[in-house]
Design a protein around this nucleic acid. Structure first.
Lengths: 226, 226
DNA sequence: CGAGAATGTGAACTGCGTGTGAACCAGACC
DNA sequence: GGTCTGGTTCACACGCAGTTCACATTCTCG
């Protein structure tokens, strides 16, 4: 739902930067102050930030500091800087991941963003269960569909993980109770139905059909090819 | 004893590169081939490598690959590249840590090396564990959040350090007792709860949510991003 | 087309898991 | 011995998640 979006500073952002980002089909939002950044962020978080220190270095670095001090630091953070300001970097190594001297070649921006995103994406790859646009992070107990985070309860997560681990395979309710709830579990089979229903609701109308009902048998995730 | 030495390719290295390195008092050794690199290395290892892909891209990338494939990859690895070769980077993100377009400004080299070495120093030294505004100094057993010192007890510190060392990952109580309290520890799982509670109190209302409860599972520090 | 079975849905109920305050205990220090 | 600090355990309250139930809807097959 919420696309990946880069934070730009200042507002308006440098024309050449905007042109390059648009050309590369990157989403971005320019902000003029730390307050604006918070406001514009909403609850989606930033894919990264590109901070231009040319016009107002103090505020720019203050913004970097703010983005880095968070509980979830904004990464990657790319700083645009003029050749004459290079000395500023030395004492601020903790405030950026990469820098680029202005003016820059559009290809360089593309290359740097590409490399930064590549690094971010491969940082200690967690164990994942994936199926199409559905992704389950086993380590953090988080789930996303189309990149949108799903707020699942424990049993919902366990059920979805089990189904997603065996895509296309149909499980009857008893089996699901045994495998997901535990072999010693004794409860009504309708419990499964209700959990499936809540999962479908949280998956959203668009993806509700991911979990399919097989009448007189049980449930499965995804299409089986036949 | 053995001074820090950068590996340069090719041999002879570009004059402007050599001049800048000498000016910055960096030690370096230029090599003309992978074989030469092994020979010149001896048993001291490289502080890092600066590879110029201008003259002979294929051999240059092959050298990068060789340096990266080792059990202990050579880091940091800085690639010098001409503007027209930028596209080469896209498929070789794993072969370098940073790149610089030639011709370059001596100050840029200095800044990039400075940043790369700063990052490397971070990585090697596990003396500090950091996560956002939280910083733990492993040597002095001091902790700060937003620069404000935290007065933690031993177990509080150990627990926080462990969680902060694996940000985003969820640990159940048993695992925490094993890893933080010790494998031979046998005590109630509620101990973890109470320590978490005290940690949250000391972190302050603002950062109490840094340690998150994952119902029916355990605790984790911070949010993992997607 | 209609009856019965299977599933979807809304809502109420209930218990487990967690937060929290406080007591308890052991060791260090004076 | 007294006190202080830090770690563990206990008891209780509360809210959410899991379960169950009743009813609506859909599907299947004669």
């Amino acid at each position: 739902m919420t696309a990946e979006t880069f934070l730009l500073y200042p507002d308006p952002a440098p024309a050449d930067l905007v042109r390059s980002l648009d050309f590369g089909a990157y989403n971005w939002t320019a902000v003029g102050s730390i307050g604006d950044a918070r406001e514009a962020e909403g609850d989606r978080g930033w894919t990264g930030a590109i901070i231009n220190t040319a016009d107002n270095p103090d505020d720019a670095w203050a913004l970097c500091r703010e983005l880095r001090r968070r509980d979830v630091p904004v990464e990657p953070l790319l700083v645009l800087i003029s050749g004459s300001q290079l000395d500023d970097l030395e004492t601020r190594n903790d405030l950026f991941d990469d820098f680029m001297i202005t003016p820059f070649h559009p290809r360089e921006l593309e290359a740097r963003l590409g490399h930064l995103l590549w690094k971010a994406g491969r940082g200690v790859r967690p164990e994942m269960v994936e199926h199409g646009s559905l992704a389950l992070n086993v380590e953090t107990y988080q789930a996303t569909i189309d990149g949108r985070p799903l707020d699942l309860t424990f049993m919902e997560y366990e059920l979805l993980k089990f189904l997603a681990s065996h895509p296309g395979k149909v499980f009857n309710r008893e089996t699901l109770l045994n495998r997901v709830w535990g072999y010693d579990y004794y409860g009504g089979a309708r419990t499964v139905d209700v959990h499936v229903r809540r999962l479908r609701a949280k998956l959203g109308e668009e993806h509700a059909s991911l979990i399919q009902t097989v009448r007189s048998v049980g449930y499965k995730l995804g299409q089986s090819r036949w």
